[in-house]
Amino acid sequence: MRNSVAFAISLLVTVLALGLAWLLDDGTQRIAGLPLLPALALFAFMVQWAVYVPSFLGRTEHYYDLAGSLTYASVILLAAVLGTPDARGWVIAALVLVWCGRLGSFLFARVKRSGKDGRFDDIKPHWGRFLMAWTFQGLWVFMTLLAALIAVTGPAAAGWDAWASVGLSVWAAGFAIEAVADRQKSAFRADPANRGDFIRHGLWAWSRHPNYFGEITLWTGIAIMATPAMSGWQWLGWASPLFVFWLLNRVSGIPMLEKRADATWGGQPAYEAYKARTPVLFPRPPGR
């Protein structure tokens, strides 16, 4: 892809995200002359672009995941401070901070330990394509946070209700699955005896990507919690978990990892048997 095309895509993505934010904003609060939701969306993109510049000059992706996590934290904190969250909104903000703190530190440590992230090998030398990756991270932050931002910045919902309790339970289950899966894989990779092999035990015997299943589940929990705060166009806040599912299942998550795994272990009897008996995403008890 040419740099000019990648730049045009980055511009289009930014405009579409800002347009969606403008559509969903309730118009009750403004910051720097902008409605609150568009201002928060623009802030998410601007943080990515600010970190992109030194990263491109240094040809490094080391701060990509860390920048994403810090943007999540910054956006949700700004939303809580500038909005009028009720108890539901404050709990949602706290859950987002817990999630991004754990995942961001985990991903940053993993990149520093391995020395690089293979996703960026082909695009780091090209300013437009590398910029597009950072711009899409801004989109990822805003779209994933969409339901949370509606709940945190909007008027108080109907107090703590069944939606909040059920959503919190779903979030906790997803968070636990993601954290356990990440820990299991880290421990597997840290054992020299497993060098060159693939993980197939623990949660990884139930799903080939249990961490992604946990990620989708926890954002579904956030959307459930935020549901009573939605009205009119704000029902599009449910695009949040759908976007996470689409991104991980069709774009940057599972397809890339499956392709890499097939290139590494494809044709090996143990790997082919593992693929045949283990679902890609949604867990199923092993042995069935």
Rank of each mutant, 00 (worst) to 15 (best):
W246L: 13
Q29W: 10
L95A: 07
G253E: 06
R277L: 01
A263P: 04
G214A: 03
L146K: 04
G115C: 09
R250W: 12
A133P: 00
E272F: 07
L16A: 15
G138H: 05
G167Y: 03
F198S: 13
V91F: 04
L131F: 12
M143E: 03
P286M: 09
S69T: 08
E215M: 06
G128N: 00
F43V: 14
L40C: 10
N211W: 15
T60S: 15
Y212H: 14
G287A: 02
A79F: 01
A173K: 00
G27W: 13
K259V: 05
Q48C: 13
L18F: 12
W99I: 02
R2P: 06
I177G: 04
R88T: 13
A276E: 08
R129L: 13
R208G: 15
Y64I: 05
F142L: 08
D25K: 15
D182P: 07
V251R: 10
W204C: 13
I224D: 04
G58Q: 14
E258I: 05
I177F: 02
V111H: 04
P125M: 05
G89S: 02
Y52C: 06
M230F: 15
L168V: 07
D26E: 14
R260F: 04
I224V: 15
G101N: 10
A273E: 11
R250H: 14
T264C: 03
N211I: 15
A181F: 07
G287K: 00
V141A: 07
A261P: 04
A79D: 02
W171A: 04
F245W: 14
F108K: 08
W206Q: 11
V51N: 10
W233N: 14
V244R: 03
A193H: 15
L20R: 13
A151Q: 03
R113D: 10
P35I: 12
V81G: 08
L131Y: 11
P125W: 09
A156Q: 06
L203A: 01
W140I: 01
V15Y: 02
T153F: 01
P283A: 08
V170N: 08
G167F: 02
L257P: 02
G89I: 02
R2N: 14
A158L: 05
Y212F: 15
V91R: 03
S207P: 01
D117V: 03
A261N: 12
A94E: 05
Q48I: 07
A32N: 05
V96S: 02
L95D: 02
A79M: 06
Y212P: 10
M1N: 09
S252Q: 07
L242P: 07
V152S: 06
R88M: 10
W99C: 01
A39R: 06
Y63H: 13
F136W: 06
W219Y: 13
I216S: 13
A181I: 06
A44D: 08
A164R: 00
I222D: 05
A173G: 04
W233Y: 14
A173E: 00
G101M: 11
A148Q: 05
K275C: 10
F43E: 08
P228G: 14
G33S: 11
D161F: 01
R59S: 13
A87C: 00
L149E: 08
